[in-house]
């Protein structure tokens, strides 16, 4: 068969209501799930330590309320077309607002809560899901957000442009990581699931980039002191 048809079917998963990157149990093989746990435990343990040192006493109330914020921000949908709606994943937004270490802890809390309490994503697959949505999206989002700011001086257009691209690429990165995990598990052929995930999330990613940039724009105009790199004056 041609990949395009199967790609269409697999793409259907991405268009289904709810976040599409939460892998349920049974879709990742035991070795992939185990590898996901090992990588996740190592990175999260380090992030917890660094975030705790940087934020000190404020760590728990700040990161806890921020995790609740990301959870709620994922509800902020906007109509796209034909009854479907776009919404946020939040990794890039978290990393721009909180820096990489706290963002990883916050996204781990979000993805963990979703699996533990709301069955969004599996329990055995939780390591893999945190890796995809909480670590890969943040690492890539952080790198992408930094690059333009290494060559250009910080200014509103540079920050917003960087935030848009970081949002877009971070979702693509999470989708690619998810596709590879499914392929390695033998759940989905790579030549089908990779283009499907990349294709669907190219669109979802644009929405992510737009929301991320608009959110940063709002914070820049109302509380610029909260954005690292922005002018420290208040509006």
């Amino acid at each position: 068969m041609t990949p395009s048809f199967a790609t269409g079917i697999a793409a259907g998963a991405g268009l289904a209501p709810g976040p599409a990157l939460h892998i349920p149990d049974g879709f990742v093989s035991a070795p992939v799930a185990a590898a996901g746990w090992v990588a996740t435990v190592a990175v999260v343990a380090l992030s917890v330590r660094v975030a705790n040192r940087r934020l000190e006493e404020r760590a728990v109330p700040l990161m806890g309320v921020m995790a609740a914020f990301i959870f709620a921000a994922q509800m902020m949908n906007f109509p796209v077309a034909g009854g479907t709606s776009g919404h946020l994943l939040g990794g890039a937004l978290a990393v721009v607002l909180l820096g990489p270490w706290a963002a990883i802890v916050v996204m781990t809390a979000v993805v963990g809560l979703q699996a533990l309490l709301f069955q969004d994503g599996g329990l055995a697959a939780l390591g893999a899901n945190v890796l995809n949505m909480g670590i890969v999206t943040i690492a890539v989002g952080w790198a992408v957000y930094r690059i333009p700011r290494l060559v250009a001086r910080d200014s509103r257009p540079v920050l917003l442009g960087a935030a848009f691209v970081a949002g877009w690429i971070s979702v693509e990165a999470g989708a690619i990581a998810t596709a590879f995990m499914l392929a390695l598990s033998g759940t989905s052929p790579l030549n089908v699931v990779l283009p499907a995930m990349v294709g669907v999330h190219a669109l979802i990613g644009i929405g992510e980039g737009l929301i991320t940039a608009a959110a940063i724009a709002f914070v820049l105009s109302t509380r610029p002191d909260l954005i690292p790199g922005a002018a420290p004056t208040r509006a």
Binding site: M76, F78, I211, T212, A213, A214, A215, F218
Partner: peptide, 18 residues
Amino acid sequence: WRAGVAGRMVGSLFVRSL
């Protein structure tokens, strides 16, 4: 434009949450 509106709501929710 609609995504921008959702983004501003997210930004406003962030400031209030912080």
